[in-house]
């Protein structure tokens, strides 16, 4: 089995079988990173380009390591030092990169739909590394991988996603992935941060964080973007932390062995308290798994099949 599209633009539109294929493939890549020689020849001779229009440490590094561990040639283009500052359009930049023969283009962009815009105009595989408020599919896949690894199954689990749902691409991708694999999803945040019609994606909406986390198997806290305060979306960090921050007390309402996740970067003491982040979370496992999941995605989009990976 292989993926039906040349690109990975979002989790929406992926079948449960495709999602499982990625997770299974990632499982067979995970041990590569544990070896002394962290490299397999799967993508030797392939060129992978990281094109990032937003700042990123984790995601960019993770993609770069994933490509290198598959033996691909990986290049990073940061828009602050590229022709973008001279006013070149996204499409022109991408076409020029493609003219130098790249196989996989990884795009992070502040505009929702930018990866889809390029994917329909390029022959290369486009991987969405986060677009606006739309999707961040590799983050959701690594989250699903981590949940499956820790809890064994995803089906039937209850997951609470807490924070600024409206402006979160991580939330959208996770909602699609979790519901596709049979989990029950609750979303929780201030009413100003719950987007119109989100319940149509099959989630339950909460404004009360204590009720939202009650008895759940997994809590995903989202990064609070502090500039949203100026837009009137919340009155201040103090009240946000009190109403929505995940601390020891609130965590005690969740299921006994509830997992705590965060896509990073964290605002310690705002959406998550340091003791919860440091002693009760799987945040660093998520980061570790990110490399394996991204290896799987690049491998599958480059025509690899699951059997070869193992």
């Amino acid at each position: 089995m292989s993926l039906s599209s040349k690109d990975l633009l979002g989790i929406k539109g992926m079948s449960p079988e495709e999602i499982r294929l990625v997770l299974d493939t990632a499982a067979s890549f995970k041990d590569v990173s544990e070896r002394d020689i962290k490299k397999v020849p799967a993508l030797r001779g392939k060129t992978v380009i990281n094109l990032f229009y937003e700042p990123s440490t984790r995601t960019r590094t993770s993609f770069e390591l994933a490509g290198k561990r598959l033996s691909a040639d990986v290049l990073n283009i940061s828009t602050t030092t590229s022709s973008v500052v001279k006013g070149e359009t996204l499409l022109d930049t991408a076409r020029n990169i493609e003219a130098m023969k790249c196989d996989v283009l990884i795009l992070r962009h502040p505009c929702s739909g930018a990866p889809a815009f390029l994917a329909s105009r390029l022959k290369s595989s486009v991987i969405n590394a986060g677009d606006g408020f739309h999707e961040h599919p590799t983050q959701a896949l690594l989250d699903l991988f981590t949940i499956r690894e820790k809890l064994g199954t995803i089906e039937g689990r209850t997951v609470a996603i807490v924070g600024d749902i409206a402006h979160s691409r991580v939330a959208r991708s996770n909602i699609y992935g979790l519901t596709a694999l049979g989990a029950r999803v609750r979303v929780c945040g201030p009413a100003t941060m719950i987007p119109y019609g989100i319940e149509q994606s099959g989630v339950e909406v909460f404004y009360d964080a204590d009720r939202a986390v009650d008895g759940v198997d997994v809590i995903m806290t989202l990064r609070l973007q502090l500039e949203r305060q100026a837009a009137g979306l919340f009155p201040g960090v103090r009240e946000y932390a009190r109403l929505y921050g995940l601390n020891r007390d609130r965590l005690s309402r969740a299921g006994k062995n509830a997992m705590v996740m965060h896509p990073g970067p964290m605002n310690r003491g705002v959406e998550i308290s340091s003791d919860v982040a440091d002693s009760s979370s799987v945040i660093l496992d998520q980061v570790t798994n990110g490399v394996a999941v991204r290896m799987a995605i690049m491998f599958l989009l480059s025509g690899g099949a699951k059997a070869e990976a193992s």
Partner: peptide, 13 residues
């Protein structure tokens, strides 16, 4: 337009 589709597409409504 702000609606279920703007939420899905991640576009400001």
């Amino acid at each position: 337009n702000e609606g279920a589709l703007s939420t899905e597409l991640g576009l400001r409504g």
